[in-house]
């Protein structure tokens, strides 16, 4: 078994949040996605969700606010999953709800050493 971290990236402005119904529908998509993974008896751990606001600190003392004008996509959440291979992780990520709002999933193996 290998452990992978999934980083969910999306353009916040494209994530539906105009009405409670839209937000609930999005939430349901995530819950159904996670339920479908757990139903396959795959060890999956939900990470925390991140808010769009943040700050970037650089060595020269420059601190900038988010959202980050230079890049549209930001990390807005993560999860860890235990599967045999990166191909298995890819299979799971292929139906991740973030893809429906134009986002993407970055999969990285966790170095267990």
């Amino acid at each position: 078994m290998k452990e992978f971290i999934m980083l969910f990236r999306a353009d916040y402005s494209k994530i539906p949040k105009d009405s409670p119904e839209e937000m609930q529908a999005m939430n349901k998509k995530w819950m159904d996605w996670i339920g479908g993974i757990e139903a396959q008896n795959i060890s999956f751990e939900r990470g925390k969700r991140l808010t769009p606001n943040g700050k970037i600190v650089r060595a020269n003392g420059v601190i900038t606010d988010g959202p980050y004008a230079e890049i549209k996509e930001t990390v807005n959440g993560h999860a860890t999953v235990k599967v045999e291979s990166i191909e298995d992780a890819v299979k799971i990520a292929k139906v991740c709800p973030i893809l429906t709002v134009g986002g993407n999933v970055e999969i990285r193996e966790i170095d267990l050493l």
Partner: peptide
């Protein structure tokens, strides 16, 4: 019921729940 099963599976997997 679907959402409850989604949560149940996160607490404990069982083939019947799946």
């Amino acid at each position: 019921i679907l959402q409850l099963y989604n949560q149940l599976l996160q607490i404990e997997y069982s083939p019947i729940a799946a």
